[in-house]
Amino acid sequence: MEFFNNHKKLFWAVFLFFGGLTLLVAILPALENQRNFRPLPNAEPLSDAAVKGKMIFIANGCVACHTQQVRNVDMDKTWGSRPSIAADYAGDHRIDVWRNTATLMGTERTGPDLTNVGLRQPSAAWNLTHLYNPRILVKESVMPAYTWLFTTTTKPNPGDVVINVPAEFRDDAGDGQVVATPEALQLLAYLQSLKQTKLPDGRPVPAFLYKKKDKVESGGSAKTTAFDGAALYATNCQSCHQPNGEGLKGAFPPLKGSPVVLNDNPEIMVNIIMNGYSGRIKEGYGPMPAVGTNNNLSPEEITAIMNHEKTSWGNNARAVTPDEIKKLVDLIKLQGTTK
């Protein structure tokens, strides 16, 4: 055919065909998105430190293993209170003349999603220790150790942030104290800034799809799903308080033998879970985040966690019931709103 034997016609056709489709599926949708979406009105801009921290995050290729997108499927509920929407990324622009926009949505979850990590794990001590070597806190972790973001000094200056590293994880001889460099603190600031922005009131929240079907189908008896306390503990508490409940000396207090956990009156324990706690900073323990509130734990889930803590590692306290915890949680929420 004449058309196929004329290289100019053939390759122009190929170019235009491909170019047209490119316009249709890449360039036009991208331009459309740019035009249609603005950041949410209550979105907080990154602090200067966090902006620098984001650059460190980018430079070290963290996006290879950490996504920043909550998909609209039920299994992604762990990573945020709502699915991510286009507006969440609308504030991202080209970084500088050398580097492209960084939505950092990622394509692989070798590590956890970080969309909401600032709410889930805000603790400075935890994050810095974890950056120095993740296996100090999570022994199964395969994340690299970022020891080059830290220095060792025998005499820390007053403003220095010192972290408590067990001897076996020290790269150096072990004399002197491990101090976070400004880069480590900037990266920390960036991680702490990663929080899902609440949608403005009245906006419908996009739904999570592919919900898990309830097992209660026949019979009609409203069996409450039994929550796995050990699994919930692993997801929400274990990275600080450790699988053996002994915490980490000088950083996170033990739950094994803890008077709060063993107390027959669950009031204080529920309060700490829902509101966080910073009463033992003088002893060297970091402040505890409000895990229950941040992670949207239901009273039933909190009960399961509490009962796991109260009956494991040699602890032998009275088990609590969902009903009494629900009352306490409702009371705390009520106090929170009246404040």
């Binding site: 290289h7 390759f11 190929v14 170019f15 491909f18 170019g19 490119t22 890449a26 360039i27 949708p29 991208a30 331009l31 998105n33 740019q34 979406f37 286009a86 990324y89 609308a90 504030g91 991202d92 622009h93 080209r94 492209n100 926009t101 960084a102 939505t103 949505m105």
Partner: peptide, 28 residues
């Protein structure tokens, strides 16, 4: 030859900054 034309188009579209704000970056 088609592959080389496509390679050029792809790199050009992927690196030009005009359609890469926000989610545009991910679509591209």
């Amino acid at each position: 030859v088609a592959a080389i034309i496509f390679g050029l188009v792809i790199v050009t579209v992927g690196y030009l900054p005009f359609w890469q704000d926000g989610l545009g970056e991910t679509i591209v």
